[in-house]
Lab assay of single mutants.
Amino acid sequence: AVTGSQTALLLRAFEKDRFPGIAAREELARETGLPESRIQIWFQNRR
C-alpha cells in the first residue's frame, strides 16, 4: 500500500506534470521506494 508521505510526494509531482516521462517516474520511484511500474499505474489511475 502507498503510505501518506508517498501519496503526498506523488500528489505534488502530479500537480506539476500529469504525464511524467520515464525519467521523472524513475526519480519518483527512487524517492518513494515504490517500483516505477507502480508509479505509472498511480498516475494513470489519478488522471
Score class of each variant (00 low, 15 high):
D17T: 08
R46T: 10
S5L: 14
F14W: 12
G33T: 02
F43N: 00
R47N: 11
A1E: 14
V2I: 15
R18G: 05
P20R: 01
P35A: 10
G21N: 13
L34Y: 03
A1Y: 13
R12M: 11
R46H: 12
T3L: 07
V2K: 04
P35W: 03
L10M: 04
F43Y: 04
Q40C: 13
P35F: 03
S37E: 13
E27H: 09
F19R: 04
L34C: 04
Q44H: 10
T3D: 09
S37W: 15
R18E: 08
E26A: 12
I22N: 08
G21K: 05
E31Q: 15
I39E: 02
R30P: 00
A1K: 12
E27S: 10
R38N: 07
G33R: 03
T32L: 09
A13Q: 04
S5C: 15
A24D: 08
G33S: 03
P35K: 06
R30T: 05
Q6M: 10
L28Q: 00
L9K: 09
A1L: 12
N45G: 06
D17E: 08
Q40G: 07
T3C: 10
P20E: 01
V2P: 10
G33V: 02
T32C: 05
R12I: 12
R47K: 03
F43V: 02
A29E: 03
G4F: 07
L34S: 00
I41M: 13
E26L: 14
S37R: 11
S37F: 13
T32S: 05
T3A: 05
N45E: 15
T32Q: 00
R38K: 12
P20D: 01
T7F: 15
G33A: 03
T7P: 02
R30F: 06
E31F: 07
G33K: 05
A24P: 02
L11K: 08
E15P: 00
L11E: 15
A29N: 03
R12Y: 06
P35R: 04
L11F: 04
I22L: 14
L10F: 01
R38M: 15
P35E: 09
L28W: 01
E26W: 07
A13C: 13
W42T: 00
V2C: 03
R18K: 12
K16R: 11
L9H: 08
I41Q: 14
I39H: 00
Q40K: 13
R12Q: 12
Q40M: 13
S5G: 10
L10V: 00
A8H: 08
F19D: 07
R30I: 08
Q44I: 09
Q6R: 05
T3K: 06
R47C: 03
I22T: 10
R47F: 04
F19T: 05
G4Q: 14
L11W: 06
K16S: 07
W42M: 00
Q40P: 03
R25C: 12
S37Q: 11
I39V: 09
P35I: 04
L9P: 03
T7D: 11
P20G: 02
R18Y: 04
I39R: 00
Q6W: 10
L10H: 01
G4C: 15
L28H: 01
A24R: 11
I41F: 08
T7A: 14
R47I: 09
P20S: 02
N45W: 13
L9E: 04
T3E: 06
W42K: 00
G33Q: 04
A1C: 15
E15F: 10
R30S: 05
G33H: 04
R25F: 14
T32H: 02
P35S: 14
I22F: 11
F19Q: 05
A23S: 10
W42I: 01
A8V: 10
A8D: 11
